[in-house]
């Protein structure tokens, strides 16, 4: 069973008007990659891998990380992550590798760049604004009330 299947069938449900239940995507008979459902022996490395996997987006399930998806492609990507971490790569290198293949889409952890800077600028502006509002509303009014 997989998230893609669910995703598709929910789409199918939404679109289909009295169509017969559509046969869903067939599954590959190939067993999942070795490290798709197997943890690394070193708990430290596994923890690092796990943390990284939670921040990588599954290609087919659309809105889920590869750490919580049953889609075969997510399993294969978990294998890639675990193998690379086990080989001593830093999580940032693995992330950078995947971004070089799929663009920023693959990572749930946006880095500051020409396309993402507003994501970081806006909270700063909000922080300043919050400070300003408090200073203006409360600081001055406080004196007035005293």
């Amino acid at each position: 069973m997989n998230r893609l299947g669910r995703y598709l069938s929910s789409m199918v449900l939404a679109i289909a008007v009295l169509a017969m239940p559509v046969t869903l995507i067939a599954q590959s008979t190939m067993p999942p990659a070795p490290y798709a459902y197997t943890q690394l022996d070193d708990p430290q490395q596994e923890a690092v891998a796990r943390e990284l996997m939670e921040t990588l987006r599954c290609l087919q399930c659309q809105s889920q990380s590869i750490a919580d998806s049953d889609a075969p492609v997510a399993g294969d990507m978990r294998h890639q992550v675990r193998v690379r971490i086990a080989a001593g790569e830093h999580p940032d290198e693995v992330r950078a590798y995947l971004i070089s293949r799929y663009g920023d889409y693959i990572s749930y952890d946006p880095q500051i760049s020409t396309t993402t800077w507003p994501l970081f600028a806006v909270p700063v502006v909000l922080l300043l604004l919050a400070g300003l509002v408090m200073w203006r509303r409360l600081g001055r009014k406080g004196e007035a009330a005293t």
């Binding site: 190939m30 990659a33 294969d76 990507m77 890639q80």
Partner: peptide
């Protein structure tokens, strides 16, 4: 490609 390794290397979505 049994483990989608080249798929990822190519940046292919499926």
């Amino acid at each position: 490609d049994d483990i989608s390794e080249i798929q990822f290397a190519l940046g292919a979505s499926g």
